[in-house]
Deep mutational scan, measured.
Amino acid sequence: KKVIATKVLGTVKWFNVRNGYGFINRNDTKEDVFVHQTAIKKNNPRKYLRSVGDGETVEFDVVEGEKGAEAANVTGPGGVPVQGSKYAADR
């Protein structure tokens, strides 16, 4: 997939743990970017499923997906693991 931007910061608008996807609002352009659970590179080690939490600040790359921009290599700011959704089960 073609990389559009790297190391972008954004805020998770919403993320559905059961369906495994959601949207991140970019801090720079204010665009909403699709995020799939497979794009989460550093999950919270205490969580079973990969997820990001609503309102969480994340860092990610933006790539060209089939339906427009989507997030890739999602981590917390500075490459730390994401916090994850409060609806995702703990280990």
Rank of each mutant, 00 (worst) to 15 (best):
K2D: 06
V3I: 15
V3W: 05
T6A: 07
T6F: 15
K7S: 11
K7H: 14
K7P: 03
L9S: 10
T11D: 05
V12K: 00
V12S: 01
V12D: 01
V17T: 10
V17L: 09
R18P: 04
R18H: 11
G20W: 02
G20S: 06
Y21F: 13
G22R: 01
G22S: 01
G22E: 01
G22Y: 01
R26K: 03
N27K: 14
D28C: 03
D28G: 03
D28E: 04
T29W: 02
K30Q: 14
D32C: 05
D32R: 02
V33P: 01
V33G: 01
V35F: 10
V35L: 13
V35C: 13
H36A: 04
A39K: 11
A39W: 03
A39S: 10
A39L: 02
K41Q: 15
K41S: 15
K42Q: 10
N44Q: 09
N44P: 07
N44R: 07
P45Y: 12
K47D: 07
L49Y: 09
L49A: 06
L49T: 10
S51R: 05
S51M: 05
V52P: 04
V52E: 02
V52Q: 02
G53N: 14
G55D: 12
E56F: 03
T57D: 15
V58N: 00
V58L: 10
E59P: 00
D61E: 07
V62C: 07
V62E: 02
V62R: 00
V62N: 01
V63R: 07
E64I: 10
E64F: 09
G65V: 09
G65T: 13
E66K: 15
K67Q: 14
E70H: 14
E70P: 00
A71F: 00
A71C: 12
A71M: 00
A72D: 15
V74K: 00
T75I: 05
T75A: 09
P77K: 13
G78L: 12
G78A: 15
G78N: 14
G79D: 10
V80R: 10
V80Y: 12
V80D: 14
V80W: 11
V80A: 09
P81Y: 14
V82D: 04
G84S: 06
S85T: 06
S85I: 06
Y87K: 10
Y87S: 08
A88N: 08
A88H: 06
D90F: 09
D90C: 09
